[in-house]
Amino acid sequence: MTSVRYTKDHEYVRVDGAVAVVGISDYAQSQLGDVVFVELPDVGKTVEKGKEAAVVESVKAASEVYAPLSGEVVEVNAELEGNPGLVNTDAEGQGWFLKLKLADPAELDALMDADAYKAFLDTLG
């Protein structure tokens, strides 16, 4: 069973068993504009919930991407190196950033589901 959750910083996490796929939401990519580069962590690195895990760059801005959950990086999206535009065209699909082996799946409960995130976006106007 897969479920997608979101953070208030506009990261998403799609959990599939013990592995979570992390990226930025479609809303986030629309706010950034054309993504030109994504700096990804090394595989094997341990990331902590709420701490910097990656950096996404548009032409005139660089934004940190925070780990929505704690865990170990087991894979990063190598496609982004040659084609960072995937983040714009398919943020929540082919534009994923990294996969985490979760340290504490219970952390997931604190995140928003799709409906809650949509409601949250509405409050941003």
Binding site: V36, F37, S58, V59, K60, A61, A62
Partner: peptide
């Protein structure tokens, strides 16, 4: 230019 100080500041 995202490498540079006017965007990245302390980073």
């Amino acid at each position: 230019s995202t490498r540079e100080q006017h965007i990245r500041r302390e980073k």
